[in-house]
């Protein structure tokens, strides 16, 4: 009985930690979804934007010696500039190209941002400290990492505010119009350029938040961009066009891979975290090709 109780608590602890890691994946996936929804661009650069934003935040803090809130504001401004540049120099020139071309262009952006960020801010591993709590707390026998809890709450807050932004504001409605049909949106007077800049800026800010969370957890370093790849199975699971999908997909992937690592890993040699998420997503897609919340794919001849 005692044993079973302990087992259960352990299981819950693993599950909880997995769910919270999952919200961190969701934060990255959220940026992808925003851009995919509004422009149909599969934005590979989300991970690079996250790294760039986190590097800039730390850079501003160190260089100017200011409080992190000021650095945050500066970084947000920088991300808006980045969004403007991307629209001006890349996407604006590639209007009406196929999805794969735009996807490649975002890979180009990825390379550029990775190189640029490290050129101006240096490539050492930096510690990001904005006073987020560390250590773990005891929730009725389950130990929970405080930072992950904060990340989870932040993700929740972000999703709620994005939902309000999308559904209640004028810009939000314009964004959804563009997402549905570029031409129809343009014909009722919505400026595609402005919308794209806004969406990329918002994705940049989401990237910044994700960067802060991951940076506080692991330090700001180049390998953060690899984490962004983990957002891909999250997206597949949740569907490319669904914000709740990004969140729930993240939770499933996070919990799934942690549980698999603990309970299946030892039997097959461990380190299955590297591929489990992809396999899970692939198996899932075989049942539902458009993901959990994705729009049904309708094919016309």
């Amino acid at each position: 009985m005692e044993d079973m109780m302990y087992e259960l608590l352990f299981f819950l602890e693993v599950l909880f930690s997995g769910l919270l890691t999952g919200t961190l994946y969701s934060l990255v996936a959220l940026g992808f979804v925003l851009i995919f929804k509004a422009s149909g661009v599969f934005n590979f650069a989300q991970g690079a934007m996250m790294l760039f934003a986190a590097l800039s935040l730390v850079g501003f803090q160190e260089m100017l010696g200011v409080h992190w809130t000021i650095a945050f504001v500066l970084t947000v401004a920088l991300m808006v500039v980045v969004a403007w540049c991307i629209e001006k120099f890349v996407l604006g020139k590639l209007v009406n190209q196929e999805g794969i071309i735009l996807f490649m262009a975002t890979i180009g952006i990825t390379f550029f941002l990775d190189g640029f960020g490290q050129t101006i801010w240096g490539s050492d591993i930096k510690t990001l400290d904005i006073g987020l709590p560390t250590g773990s707390i005891d929730l009725g026998g389950i130990f929970v990492d405080r930072l992950e809890l904060v990340a989870g709450l932040t993700a929740a807050a972000l999703v709620v505010s994005l939902a309000i932004f999308f559904n209640k504001t004028k810009i939000g409605r314009a964004l959804r119009a563009v997402a549905d049909d570029h031409q129809a949106a343009m014909s009722v007077g919505i400026s595609l350029r402005t919308i794209w800049i806004i969406v990329w800026s918002v994705a940049g800010v989401v990237g910044l938040v994700a960067g802060i969370m991951w940076g506080s957890k692991l330090g700001v370093q180049f390998s953060l961009t690899l984490l962004a790849l983990k957002a891909l199975p999250v997206l597949m699971l949740g569907g490319f066009t669904s914000i709740p999908g990004a969140i729930i997909g993240g939770l499933i992937i996070g919990a799934g891979e942690k549980l698999a690592e603990i309970y299946i890993g030892p039997f097959v040699g461990g380190a299955i975290e590297n591929w489990f998420a992809y396999m899970l997503a692939m198996a899932f897609l075989l049942v539902r090709p458009q993901g959990l919340f994705g729009e049904k794919i309708i094919e016309r001849v």
Binding site: A105, G108, I109, F112
Partner: peptide
Amino acid sequence: EFMIFGVLIIFFLI
């Protein structure tokens, strides 16, 4: 190298 690589990819795509 990263930066130039990225710019060239975008340049060729455009």
